[in-house]
């Protein structure tokens, strides 16, 4: 009970506060900017044709209402929350009048699927391989792995992605160039296998980069762990190496590793901009990219809100998982 009151409740309150402040700031920033989206939209609409002043005025009012920009800033703020609670993020400007939620909803599952899988795979690979390499630093495969990682890690992601794209879609065309799947979404093998097929290359590019980073981190953590008294003592007692690796080394590095995993998962909602653009993948990163190019404020707002909620939730989860990972946290 004290755990609930002293540990869990404060963190849930904190989660609400973070989201509230984050969303309020997101509301304020565009309104403090000198660029008026209504003027911009008017400019776009009137650049190709002339309109009579009456219609222009009416249009301006409609747009103000539509953008939620009428009334004082307090009114706007209250209206903003009112709509947000109903799940209304307004319409997209670019593809008017499709609601923003629908546009983001179309991309978000692709992104969650792609990034979620890639992050999980690279996390498990990185942690296990890195810890192995840290535990057996003298082995040839450990040195070999480290050389490979150190070579791959500094390569900028966009170069890696383009190299993969050119090699595997152009010179040796085994993977498709653009898209997320074939056919309509359904629970058939045909559709699911096409999702895996289309997602393989972007996922591979993400896994390579992500694994390299986590390998380096896991190796560093493991090499301090193997000098600890409890690992040395278990070694002396000839406890099997496999047990030492998983229950003595990896288990003790879980605190930073799980933090990293959860925060990475939290950033999913921003999408992987470069990945989705390079591989023509239909996720939110691509949506965001288009929205920024066309000044589609509602979509930008929507994705920003999602990532605020995503990261706040991820750190809430991390905090809630800590006591399970390290019994010492329960005391605090």
């Amino acid at each position: 009970m004290t755990l609930l009151r002293q540990y869990i409740l404060p963190r849930i309150v904190q989660w609400f506060v973070v989201i509230f402040v984050g969303i309020s700031v997101t509301f304020l920033i565009p309104r403090l900017s000198p660029v008026n989206p209504v003027d911009q939209a008017m400019g776009r609409l009137t650049s190709f044709q002339t309109m009579d002043p009456e219609a222009t005025l009416q249009m301006r009012e409609t747009l103000l209402d539509l953008y939620g920009l009428d009334g004082s800033i307090i009114d706007q703020y209250l209206n903003f929350w009112g709509r947000l609670i109903q799940g209304d993020l307004g319409p997209s400007f670019q593809s008017f009048p499709t609601p923003v939620t629908e546009i983001i909803g179309a991309g978000i599952w692709w992104t969650i699927g792609l990034l979620g899988t890639a992050i999980l795979i690279s996390w498990v690979l990185g942690v296990v391989l890195g810890s192995l390499a840290g535990y057996f630093p003298q082995m040839w495969w450990s040195k070999f792995l480290e050389r490979v990682v150190i070579t791959v890690y500094p390569v900028p992601y966009y170069i890696l992605a383009f190299v993969l794209l050119m090699l595997l879609t152009y010179y040796w065309p085994v993977f498709p160039l653009v898209g997320g799947s074939r056919g309509d979404p359904s629970f058939t093998w045909e559709f699911i296998s096409s999702v895996l097929y289309f997602g393989f290359l972007p996922a591979l590019s993400l896994v390579i980069g992500g694994t390299a980073f986590r390998f380096i981190m896991a190796k560093a953590l493991a090499s301090t762990e193997i000098t600890s008294d409890y690992v040395q003592y278990a070694e002396l007692a000839a406890v099997p190496k496999r047990k030492i690796l998983f229950f003595y080394i990896i288990r003790n590095t879980m605190l930073p590793q799980v933090t990293d995993l959860a925060l990475s998962l939290g950033t999913i909602f921003e999408g992987a901009l470069i990945t989705e653009v390079v591989f023509g993948y239909p996720g939110v990163g691509y949506t965001l990219y288009n929205a920024i190019n066309s000044g589609d404020y509602n979509i930008i707002m929507g994705i920003t809100l999602l990532s605020i909620v995503g990261i706040a939730t991820a750190s809430l989860l991390v905090d809630l998982i800590y006591p399970l990972l390290d019994p010492r946290v329960r005391l605090r």
Partner: peptide, 28 residues
């Protein structure tokens, strides 16, 4: 067998005492 110097840190901090005993016993 060996009783180490500074036994403060020779027990794995994230493992219950009974699990550590099991690790050491089942190794032999």
């Amino acid at each position: 067998s060996y009783i180490p110097q500074g036994s403060m840190h020779v027990l794995n901090p994230v493992r219950k005492i009974r699990d550590t005993f099991h690790d050491f016993i089942s190794a032999h």
